[in-house]
Design a protein around this nucleic acid. Structure first.
Lengths: 125, 125
DNA sequence: GACATCGGATTACAAATGTAATACTTTATA
DNA sequence: TATAAAGTATTACATTTGTAATCCGATGTC
């Protein structure tokens, strides 16, 4: 239930790397981001530092170098972003937004049936 | 197909007012926002000015005062935000995001059946 | 006509963000 | 042991954003 820090656009890329890979050294983060961005290593380091200041990332020493890991929950951060997005763009009303999302999405047949299952589940509550 | 300007969090509130109300004077915008925000009128004016500089808003003179109106398409801006959101938060994969949205949403029975209809439609393509 | 007022134009200023470069420290290397 | 390399810490600097305040010109008011 801790307060979630505000994570900027660029910082999100770093967080996603840390969430999916666990504790990484700075260089490993840089390597993961190669291809996704054209950032210099120093830029990545800056982002990590800022995320630490915000409390979103912590590190443990491993010998003389650090391993960084996410200190906030991915599920919570993603949920917060989702809600903030809906509020900002749709003024909080979910339906039109979901319609747009669904129409826009590229979905496999399995995806579609799973989503339908979720909807049916909701219908029963 | 023009390039969409980048609209900040606060600016979104102004844009939504203009999209839903057409051409308004600055004071009318201020009035619409009362209750939603605690901004001083001058703050709203600044936001409008910035949106004009970005090309998102234009105005026409009406006597000695101006009427402001959105110069970019709501559908396009919303779509761009939606895509940017999915890319940032989910790395571009729609399914997990949709799952979360659907589970999170408060939906009426009618909403649910309409969404199911959309999904069925997609299944047929 | 002098003055308060309403609206728009210009200016303000700190915090956050994007994007690094430079400095300092410890360690491996010649 | 002086030096280069690897890592971390500190500093940099232009833009964007949030949040206004001040200035200026047209207008209405006494």
């Amino acid at each position: 239930m801790k307060k979630l820090p505000r994570i900027s656009e660029s910082e999100w890329l770093v967080m996603r790397v840390l969430w999916s890979n666990g504790a990484l050294t700075a260089n490993e983060v840089v390597k993961e981001l190669t291809g996704q961005t054209k950032w210099k290593p120093k830029t990545v380091k800056t982002l990590i530092t800022r995320l630490m200041q915000k409390g979103a990332v912590r590190f443990k020493k491993e010998g003389r170098k650090y391993r960084y890991y996410a200190a906030v929950s991915e599920v919570e951060c993603v949920g917060a972003q989702r809600r903030s997005f809906v509020r900002r763009v749709y003024g909080g009303t979910m339906k039109p937004m979901l319609t747009a999302f669904l129409e826009d999405a590229e979905l496999s047949a399995e995806d579609i049936s799973e989503l339908k299952r979720i909807l049916e589940q909701k219908g029963k509550e």
